[in-house]
Design a protein around this nucleic acid. Sequence first.
DNA 1: ATTGTATGTCCAA
DNA 2: TGGACCTACAATG
Length: 271
Amino acid sequence: MPEGHTLHRLARLHQKLFARRPVGVSSPQGRFAESAALLDGAVLTRAEAHGKHLFHRYGRDRVVHVHLGLYGTFVEHPLPAPEPVGQLRMRLVGETHYADLRGPTACELITPAEARALRARLGEDPLRPDAEPERVWERVSRSRSPLATLLMDQKVLAGVGNVYRAELLFRHGLDPQLPGRELDRATWDAMWADLVVLMRDGVRRNRIDTVAPEHDPRRRGQAARRDRHGGEVYVYRRAGLPCLVCGTGVRHREHAARNLFWCPACQPSRG
DNA sequence: ATTGTATGTCCAA
DNA sequence: TGGACCTACAATG
C-alpha cells in the first residue's frame, strides 16, 4: 500500500510496460477527461517517483502527477482491457498492457516547471540515488519536534509513511517523542542506511517487512501474523500484543491524527 | 450484505 | 481540528 516503496515500484513497472511508446489515455470517470484527451496517443517518455508522488512525463512539456493518497490504487494487467467499471480516474493502454488508476488524491496534468516546484518542496527520498541524507540530518538535528513528527514530514523525508516510521523507531530503540536535536549523528546515519535497505526491500517484495530473522515469530513456532500491509512488522498495528523482542505489550496512541505504535521497553523515554 | 478502518494530504472553519 | 476524498479489505452479522 502507498508508502514510498509502492510508488517506486509503480514507476519502475510503468517505465517497463509503457515508456518510449504511445499510450492511450482516458478518464472514464470524467474527472481527468480534458487532460486525458490532450495526452491520448502521446509517447510516455518516462515514469519516475519521488517520495509518494508518481510522475509520468510525456515529451518535453507535459507531466502527469499522481498521488495515491490513503486509498488510491493502480493496477496493471495484460491486454485486452475490459470495459471500465465504477470510478476509473485514468486508464493507460499500451501495446501489451493497460493500467487503471482509482481513487487517487491527485491526478493532474502539469508542466515540467510545476513538477520541479513540487519536487523542490519534498524532502530526501531514501529510494532515490540522488538523495542527500546530509540535508535530512541538518533539519532533524536542529529541530525540537519529536522524531515521530519529523520522520513523517514529507518536507524532511519523502516516502516514509506510518509503517516505516513505527518500524524504524523500533529497530533503533528510539522513543518516538525524542526531539530531533537530541538524536546523535551515529544513530541517524544508521537510521538512514536502514531506511535505504528496508525500502529497497519493500520495492522488491511489494510489502513492508522489517522483522529480523531471529525475531520472526514463524521461526519461533508462533502463528505468523501478517497484517493488512502484507508483511511482518515489530509494532505497527500490534497494539496490546507482545513485543517480538521482549514480550512487553505494544503501545498505541494518536500522534498528530495518525496512529503511532511503539514498545515502551525497547524504546524507553529519557525523561 | 453491511460496517469499520487504513499505509495520506488538503482545505475550510 | 474535523471533514473530505470515495478504494480495498477485514471483520461482523
